[in-house]
Design a binder for these strands. Structure first.
Length: 798
RNA sequence: GCGGGUAUGGCGGAACUGGUAGACGCGCAAGAUUUAGGAUCUUGUACUGAGAGGUGUGCAGGUUCAAGUCCUGUUACCCGCACCA
């Protein structure tokens, strides 16, 4: 069959008749399938996209056949650096680049026959969309969840842009690979940490693999412990540490504070070696994160001469050090060091010759720190002596609270979200700086703050946004007092637009709200969300944060936006390496569509392996899927159109296939689903003729995977489309065959098989097994025991 | 370092609560058809042995009538986090 002809024919039919339109408030049950919307790069669609979309494509088509009103939308996450860099390099405006890429991407998606509701397509770079991204920012600002703070940030000198920790992992820029440096900047933050606990709690109801949940949990990084106050010996003042091991307080031998800790400045005049301290501090601030990590094992630091702390439980005087192994950004930026029971403190103590004291029995602290919290008994610890670590923790916290020395505490690794970029191609942050009123939010009615159409969008020197040199943009009047004011010229990071797009799909053209509340109430939550493993932390957490916030604002109807989340595995190049242009191992899915057709591409990409596993592409193996579809087509000549019942001896196989193919789709085991369709097809092929009902069942089961072929063949017998034909149901009574193969083994080794009636009594089976010719020789010296597993096996122990 | 995952034929990969290891597909071999090539069809295909049989799921143990599956230890690779107190 000419795949090009039939694919074009049915794609035209589906799209021009709007078959995949999701209907608001339909009385059918709703089902919302969401795939992570793509970034429309110039390279177009990648095989990775095809895999990511094909999974829920199958689910969507199945749901329609099951009578659901399906929302399966598509959109484009189109702001961002690659487009801007391409635009700069080729001197084409990012608007034009984006529009071209989006329209090309849509064309490619349609060539694959994906059943998206294209009418709901969103584009984060359109005014009508970013209006509401800015609207959400204003809500965050007005609730104190967006704030400006002076801090050191990761900065890429090549891209001239501030990077988040995630974008600068390993000390190199995510985008260009240059070394990241630390730069002092005024930065916008979103207070995501306020939602840390909610984000953690919300995971409980999420249907996702442990891998996905644990990764989010680790990213949030909750730990329980205590805040403990330490008095300074020389001053009437104190400072607080966070520790997860309050039980070891008696073993605290020194204190360590981060180089940025305010205590240093506060008591600079009392610190006799302040020059040395400042020198260390200076060096530390200019180290990149990368260098800090590299130097992990080699602890450095300086002792503060002239001030020291007092251990609140035993009065011991504790020297205070500054060291860059303590981070200002975690806990309180200060720790109590217990060298006997913490590996980092141990290394530091060894290097600086600080004595240590064992407070938990069970290890050998002359060799290494003893950190086991499950075993070990407290010693040298006064009222904690003899207790387990767990008991000692509780007792110590009780003691601290009673004496007013500290309190139980919870701490999170997650940090507030740095939310601005000095770039052109992003949403302008809707803030105005007024000489009289200070920072003033743009009034809601003045939104959107339009991204001006400029010619020179190269970043300014010193990492300033290109908008900072555009008078028409930044000159404005204060909405409060009318004075001449200056507009914020930074834009939002790429994560902004993607943090709420799933809401917009419910009502993509609304121009007075992010989406109509009732429509969101109808569609939300997302029933099944699929995307990349790499977005399980950042994007998933950011978008859940925004949704939870908007829920608290009364703007969205559900607290948790996603019910179920899956993550497809990577498709590697034929060489087993990650696909990349430089390695020359990139497979273009459109080439495959051209040669074999969209059905074959979709089928192969799902058949290739377990959906969540990384797997190499194999260009030869595609043929197997092409042959499979040829066989399905060839069957049409065997169909007895007058027979509308299942062929009798195919009944069991067909019913099992319906059950298993359906279940495999629900558990995203698309590969085994296809293999079962192949088995059914092979069984049909072996026969002289099959009934119309047999064949139609196969076509219906095939439709979610290979809809063009299914549709084409279906129309040999029907006027109307197969897309809403009822999905086959199995008859539970027809799943079991009358006879079963029972395996007979001796001492666990397979010796023979026998075909017997189903559900024979154990005694009868045993009898039969023992009388088999192949078995007899083994039982000459007597039988110890016989184990019978009904309908499965007999094991004879001799 | 911590957390998660993976390891099964020549290859991609199947195997539900322990119960026929290798489904399905690729490749390969032989045969049929064909002027040839390609395509298609049939049969075979874990390893080993002439054979009955023996051996096999990274490695070493263990539990069990029975282990790819459970337990203990160990190795390699992949992903994530990373001086998180």
């Amino acid at each position: 069959m000419d795949h090009k002809k039939i694919e074009e024919k049915w794609q035209n039919y589906w799209y021009s008749n709007n078959l995949f339109k999701a209907e608001d408030f339909s009385s059918k049950p709703k089902y919302y399938c969401l795939i992570e919307f793509p970034y429309p790069s110039g390279a177009g669609m990648h095989v990775g996209h095809v895999r990511a979309f094909s999974g829920l494509e199958v689910v969507s088509r199945k749901r329609r056949m099951e009578g659901y009103n399906v929302l399966f939308p598509i959109g484009f996450d189109a702001f961002g650096l690659p487009t801007e860099n391409f635009a700069i390099k080729n001197n084409i405006h990012p608007r034009i680049v984006t529009d071209n890429n989006v329209s090309n991407f849509k064309k490619q998606l349609k060539k694959c026959g994906f059943s998206f509701d294209f009418d709901r397509a969103v584009d984060t770079t359109q005014e009508s969309y970013y209006h509401w991204t800015q609207f959400i920012f204003l809500h965050l600002y007005n609730k104190g969840l967006a704030y400006r703070s002076h801090t050191y940030v990761n900065y890429c000198p090549t891209c001239k842009v501030v990077l988040s920790n995630e974008e600068s992992q390993g000390g190199v820029c995510d985008r260009c690979g240059s070394d990241v440096i630390q730069k002092e900047k005024d930065v916008w933050f979103l207070r995501i940490t306020k939602y840390a606990q909610d984000l953690l709690d919300g995971l409980k109801g999420l249907n996702a693999s442990d891998r996905i949940k644990i990764e989010q949990e680790n990213w949030i990084g909750r730990s329980e412990g205590a805040f403990i106050d330490f008095k300074l010996k020389q001053k009437d003042d104190k400072f607080t540490v966070f520790t997860t091991r309050p039980d070891t307080l008696f073993g605290a031998m020194f204190m360590v504070i981060a180089p940025e800790h305010p205590l240093i400045e506060k008591y600079a005049s009392s610190i006799t070696n302040i020059d040395e301290v400042n020198k260390y501090k200076e060096a530390a601030t200019h180290k990149t994160e990368f260098e800090r990590v590299q130097l992990q094992k080699d602890k450095t630091g300086v002792k503060l001469e002239g001030i020291s702390a007092i251990n609140p439980v035993n009065g011991r005087e504790l020297p205070i050090y500054i060291s860059d192994y303590v981070m200002m950004g975690y806990g309180t930026g200060a720790i109590m060091a217990v060298p006997a029971h913490d590996t980092r403190d141990y290394a530091f103590a060894k290097k600086f010759n600080i004595p240590m004291m064992e407070v938990i029995e069970g290890g050998d602290i002359t060799k290494e720190a003893y950190t086991d919290i499950e075993n070990g008994i407290l010693v040298n610890s006064d009222f904690l002596n003899g207790l387990s670590v767990k008991e000692a923790k509780a007792k110590m916290i009780e003691f601290l609270v009673e004496k007013g020395l500290g309190d139980k505490a919870v701490n999170y690794k997650m940090k507030d979200w740095a939310f601005n970029r000095q770039r052109y191609w992003g949403e302008p942050i809707p803030i105005i700086y007024c000489p009289n009123c200070g920072t003033v939010p743009v009034p809601y009615e003045d939104l959107p703050v339009r991204l001006p159409n400029i010619k020179n969008f190269e970043p300014g020197e010193n990492g300033e946004s290109p908008l900072a040199s555009l008078k028409e943009f930044y000159e404005c009047t204060c909405p409060k007092c009318g004075a001449k004011a200056r507009r914020e010229t930074d834009t939002m990071p790429q994560w902004a637009g993607s943090s709420w797009y799933f809401l917009r799909y419910c009502d993509p053209n609304n121009d007075h709200a992010i989406a109509d509340y009732e429509k969101m109430k109808y569609w939300l939550p997302v029933d099944w969300y699929n995307g990349g493993m790499e977005h399980v932390t950042r994007h998933l957490i950011y978008s859940r944060f925004w949704n939870e916030f908007l829920y608290d604002e009364g703007l969205v109807p559900v607290k948790e936006p996603y019910k179920k989340r899956t993550a497809q595995g990577l498709i590697l190049g034929p060489d087993g390496e990650k696909m990349s242009k430089s390695k020359g191992n990139v497979i273009d899915p459109l080439d495959v569509v051209d040669e074999y057709g969209a059905d074959v591409l979709r089928c192969y990409i799902l058949f290739i392996s377990d959906y969540e596993m990384a797997t190499p592409w194999n260009s030869d193996a595609i043929k197997g899927c092409a042959r499979f579809l040829d066989k399905v087509e060839a069957l049409s000549s065997k169909v007895n159109v007058n027979d509308n019942e299942y062929t009798k001896d195919l009944k069991v196989l067909i019913n099992n296939t319906i059950k298993e193919v359906s279940e495999d789709i629900e558990s995203s085991k698309f590969n085994t689903g296809i293999s079962k369709l192949m088995i059914l097809t092979n069984a049909f092929t072996e026969r002289e003729s099959i009934s119309l009902k047999d064949y139609e069942t196969l076509l219906k089961l095939l439709n979610p995977y290979c809809p063009h072929m299914a549709e084409e063949l279906w129309h040999n017998y029907h006027e109307e489309t197969i897309q809403f034909a009822e999905y086959p149901k199995y008859d539970p009574a027809s799943l079991l065959s009358d006879t079963v193969t029972v395996v007979v083994s001796v001492n666990g080794k397979l010796r023979d098989k026998m075909e017997v009636e189903r559900d024979l009594a154990d005694d009868v089976i045993k009898e039969k097994a023992l009388s088999l010719d192949k078995i007899k020789p083994y039982t000459l010296n007597g039988v110890k025991k016989v184990i019978v597993i009904k309908n499965k096996l007999v094991n004879i122990v001799v």
